[in-house]
Design a protein around this nucleic acid. Structure first.
Lengths: 230, 230
DNA sequence: GCACCATTCAAACGCTTGTTTAAATCCACT
DNA sequence: AGTGGATTTAAACAAGCGTTTGAATGGTGC
């Protein structure tokens, strides 16, 4: 809510972010947004041009910063390591640690944004996926390369898939208790960020470093060998 | 598309399932659905009563069966094990294996449905989350109990979280290459179900069996101590 | 005081949405 | 052939949508 202090443009962004997280893009109307922001209906089109442009700006203002932080964290780790190879855990922490830390910022809206982002990654809308891909391009290339270097025995394709799986786990970790109450009537403590971070990291590293699966050479559903390499 | 053979009711369900997966619930209109199904606009309200009821039925007709299969797979494993304890891997395979196998069924629409389901699990809409919780209740209680029995050293809360993380990873695994192309311009082979299954299982088991994280005793946001025991 | 630009405002725009209606059509059964 | 219930149809409905308009308002520099 951030009180009613900031200027109209920011109040609209904040209200939109929160409502998008709660109801999704389509179900959130400009009237809901401007009402919550204490602004006139026409303000969105005046300040942003259109609803689509507003959505894009909601992501841009935080995502750019988030990915810069990720790159900075990775570079800091690499500098600290000197000539020695980076451990996979350090890379994972650079990428997901920054995200979890942002999700811990409740008052500043980071929590809201990360919940929104996690869901949006599998968003159907072509338009949303479009600029998401743009924003992610640089950072993903960089982290993928770092992981390939840190895991010389793991095929590149496998690394990409595990990166993908990790993003799924993180996404659910952050969307958190809302979804978890489907799993259990017990209310889980997702306010404890330190704990969530520790839990998620254990899980991610465990998955990333798991024994490689045995993949048949494709297009051959023969069920003979079940060899497992480490 | 299943040709235009089945009766109107089924054709509507199939068209709706596919369109929901592609565009989401809100962005999919009844006119899109009935056009694709080759039916009159009023057919949805005649056969289902409302759009919401149609959404519920799209899930119900497959989810009930899916969860029955999961329970059956778990019981079969337990019978096979006799008095000996079930291995975590068997439990995970019962739950996620059935899902992945359903996702492999492209022609019958299982693939489409599983993609839809994965995204819907973090769906904002209260109404959707409502009946999803209902459908899942029984099966989750059962699997949670099985995991608790199979992992006596792991706290229950930790098991729930890891179960949650696993669902996230699976969800992303199935929504698959659509989202993955954000990660990489390389097109990944998510048509190879056997391979995807093997990959995901390795990752999930690795995460589930990872060393336990160190969790501070909770409810102490004092910034003094940062103790971390191993 | 006045002119100037940015911002806000109430009102309306055209369009699409889910839903309803009442008539038309189909098909099984006698 | 003809009755009756289920289904399909075209048309209309009110409500809500994103967007546009043109006038009112606000504050700055002269």
């Amino acid at each position: 809510m951030a009180l009613a202090e900031a200027d109209t443009r920011s109040r609209i962004l904040n209200a939109a972010e929160h409502l998008f997280m709660e109801h999704g893009f389509e179900a959130t109307t400009l009237r809901m947004i401007t009402t919550d922001a204490g602004a006139n209906l026409a303000a969105v089109n005046y300040h942003f041009g259109s609803k689509e442009a507003l959505i894009a700006e909601v992501f841009r203002r935080r995502l750019t910063w988030l990915n810069e932080q990720r790159l900075a964290a990775l570079e800091a780790a690499e500098v600290g390591a000197g000539d020695t190879a980076l451990k996979p855990r350090q890379i994972v922490e650079a990428f997901f640690g920054v995200a979890i830390r942002m999700a811990a910022d409740v008052e500043g809206g980071g929590r809201t944004f990360m919940r929104l982002l996690g869901r949006t990654y599998t968003e159907p809308s072509e338009f949303v996926r479009g600029f998401l891909a743009e924003e992610y391009a640089a950072v993903v290339i960089r982290f993928k390369a770092a992981l390939v270097r840190a895991l010389p025995d793991v095929p590149q394709e496998e690394i990409l898939w595990r990166f993908h799986f990790m993003m799924g786990a993180m996404s659910y970790a952050i969307s958190g208790a809302d979804a978890l109450h489907i799993l259990s009537d017990v209310q889980l403590d997702d306010a404890n960020t330190e704990a969530l971070y520790a839990r998620l990291m254990s899980f991610l590293i465990g998955g990333l470093r798991a024994p490689l699966p045995d993949i048949q050479p494709k297009k051959k559903p023969s069920k003979s060998r079940t060899r497992k390499a480490a």
